[in-house]
């Protein structure tokens, strides 16, 4: 039966579902990377995702327009980000803890709105699969990479874009400077406040899209607490990736591939208890990180509020 795992159906299946599963992690974790690069830890990703997820679903359900739904998720995410920015940047609230507050708020609020505005679980017609001409016809590879919906593609496009912005633009330089040494950045005329507002709101928007990718692209339903801890995994993956977009990509894919592997292990009826199978992605993520033990430092000013001297 172990050999079943190596059949092409299974391998393609594992890779294709890994690519899909990684999508929400990528949006949320890239957003979090921007925030942490500028020195802000946001543990409220899960709450932003839930509210974004509901907003996207509700607007799509009412209007039938997926793009309006996506826009709603982005807006709601931005609003949550704005509130988070005000609390952490202006009021200097402890970041880890305010994030937990926003998580609880998003968890409760999305459910409350769901109950009051929807009342029951419904489905929408989500973003359809788009086959990319020519390459989608390649056997195997086509099914894995080029036969997904547009939000899945978006997540993978986001990774190099994020890398480029962070490493090759002045904006990226400013973000990193603010995260490493806000005082120096400030003295050079970079507005720490403005940069952090920007990254936190951007993070909120991307978390909103992460939520939308679940409710109107991958699952096409909304249910209370449907992210079920996904946002926290996304934050963890930022650490896995060492604050580098491509590192985040590796982490998200590793976690997701192992997760789809365990689904297949069960489907193929291998004699492993289901609970132990479910554990696998979590255990392996830690083990891989131990084995590769990188010496990457966190941004120096991470979680430290900025206060101009004097």
């Amino acid at each position: 039966m172990i050999t079943d795992l190596l059949s092409s159906t299974v391998l393609i299946g594992i890779l294709a579902s890994g690519i899909r599963l990684a999508t929400p992690y990528l949006y949320a974790a890239i957003g979090e990377t921007f925030g942490q690069k500028s020195g802000v830890l946001n543990l409220g990703v899960e709450g932003q995702m839930l509210l974004g997820s509901f907003a996207a679903f509700y607007v799509t359900f009412r209007t039938g327009n997926l793009w309006l739904g996506l826009l709603a998720a982005i807006l709601v995410g931005a609003l949550m980000g704005l509130a988070m920015a005000f609390v952490t940047v202006n009021l200097h609230a402890k970041q880890g803890i305010s994030g937990i507050g926003f998580y609880l708020f998003g968890l409760g609020m999305s459910d409350l709105l769901f109950q009051k505005l929807m009342g029951t679980v419904e489905t929408v017609r989500g973003f359809p699969r788009v086959s990319i001409p020519v390459v989608s016809g390649i056997p195997g590879i086509g099914d894995i990479f080029f036969n997904q919906n547009i939000l899945v593609y978006g997540a993978y496009v986001l990774v190099p874009v994020a890398w480029f912005v962070l490493n090759k633009t002045t904006l990226g330089l400013k973000i990193r400077a603010v995260g490493e040494n806000p005082d120096a950045a400030d003295s050079l005329g970079v507005s720490v406040v403005r940069i952090r507002y920007f990254t936190i709101i951007l993070g909120g928007m991307l978390s909103g899209i992460a939520g939308a990718s679940l409710s109107i692209a991958l699952l096409n339903v909304f249910q209370q607490n449907m992210t079920s801890g996904l946002g926290f995994i996304a934050v963890a993956l930022v650490y896995f990736g060492g604050w580098r977009p491509f590192g985040v990509l590796v982490g998200a894919l590793l976690f997701s591939f192992v997760n789809s592997l365990q689904l297949w292990i069960q489907v193929l009826g291998l004699p492993i208890p289901s609970d132990i199978a479910v554990m696998m992605p979590y255990v392996l993520t830690i083990l891989v990180l131990v084995a590769t033990a990188s010496k990457i430092r966190s941004p120096s000013a991470l979680t430290k509020p900025f206060e101009r001297e004097g």
């Binding site: 579902s17 899909r20 599963l21 929400p24 679940l214 991958l218 699952l219 339903v221 249910q223 607490n225 449907m226 992210t227 079920s228 801890g229 996904l230 997760n259 789809s260 689904l263």
Partner: peptide, 8 residues
């Protein structure tokens, strides 16, 4: 509660 994993 993990709707996403149920879907996958």
């Amino acid at each position: 509660s993990d709707v996403a994993l149920a879907a996958e």
